[in-house]
Design a protein around this nucleic acid. Structure first.
Lengths: 131, 131
DNA sequence: CTACACCCTCTAGCAACTAGAGGGTCAAGC
DNA sequence: GCTTGACCCTCTAGTTGCTAGAGGGTGTAG
C-alpha cells in the first residue's frame, strides 16, 4: 500500500508518516521501482497503535516505549502500567492547573463593566500599579 | 536597572527578557557605556504586565494585543473582553478534552490485571487487532 | 591581579508536527 | 502521443515560547 492509502487508513497526514519514519518510530518500508514507499499490514498495525496512543495523549517518547514493550508479550506489564499511570497523573495535574486558570479568568472577566480601557478590570488585573 | 535586576524583580529569566526584546514585545532599553541594557520603571511595568498575562495563559500574540490596547485608555474595553473571553473558552475546551482523556485513561488502567504484556488491557486497547 | 559574577551576541535545541520548494511518476482522457 | 492532475520523492524552514550553549567582554572585591 502506498503512503497516501496508509494515511487514509489511519487518519494520519502523509507528512506525519514520513516524520515518524525519520525519527525511527515507524520502520522504513520497502520501496517500489519508482522509489515509492510500499507498506504492509505490519506497518498499518504499528501506525494504528501509534495513533491511538497519541490520541490518549502519550508523548512520542512514551509511544516509543509502549511499542517496545508491546513486542515482549511474555514480560510483565508493570512497565506499561507505570507509563500509563504517570501519564494519567500528568493529565490530572494539567486539569487542576487549567481549572484554577478558568476560575481566575472567569472572575476577572466577570468584573469587567465594559466601559473604557481606563477603568477596565481586566487590564487593571494585569497592570495593578500602571494606573 | 540591569537585566539581572529586572529579571529578579519580575521572576523572569534573563534570556526570556532578551527574547521578548528580540520579538518586539519589550522595547529595547537604553545602553550603558559598556553596552549593558539599562531598564527603567516603564520597562518594569511592561514586563510585569506581560508576566501576569502569561500566568493567565495568554499567548504572546494575545499579550501583544492586550499591551497595545492598554495604551489607549479612552477606548472601549470591548476588544479586551473579547480576547479574554475567547481565551477562557479555549481553556474550557482544553479542560473538557483532558477530562475525557482522564476518564478513558482511568478506565484502561483500571482494567489492567498486572499479568504479562500478552494479555495487558492497556496494550490491547492500543492495538486491538494486533493480537 | 586575579577570581567571580555578571553582561553581550549569535546559534541551535526542545515537541510534534506542518508547509513549502522543486522535482519525479503514473493513469486517464483527448 | 501528449497533456492534465493526482500522487509520490527529498530537503529545508517554520510554528510556540522559551532554554542552553559557545565564545567573548566588564566590573568589583579581596
Amino acid at each position: 500500500m502506498k503512503i497516501g492509502e496508509l494515511a487514509n487508513a489511519t487518519s494520519t497526514k502523509v507528512e506525519t508518516i514520513r516524520y515518524y519514519e525519520s525519527i525511527g518510530l515507524l520502520a522504513p518500508p520497502a520501496r517500489s521501482a519508482s522509489n515509492y514507499r510500499d507498506y504492509g499490514g505490519e506497518h498499518l498495525n504499528r501506525l494504528s497503535f501509534i495513533r491511538r496512543a497519541r490520541d490518549l495523549g502519550f508523548s512520542l517518547e512514551a509511544v516509543r516505549e509502549l511499542l517496545a514493550l508491546s513486542d515482549n508479550t511474555h514480560q510483565s506489564c508493570e512497565a506499561v502500567d507505570l507509563i500509563a499511570s504517570s501519564h494519567l497523573a500528568e493529565v490530572k495535574r494539567k486539569i487542576q492547573d487549567l481549572s484554577a486558570l478558568r476560575s481566575e479568568l472567569g472572575r476577572v472577566i466577570e468584573s469587567c463593566r465594559h466601559g473604557t480601557i481606563g477603568d477596565c478590570k481586566i487590564i487593571e488585573t494585569l497592570a495593578p500599579r500602571a494606573a
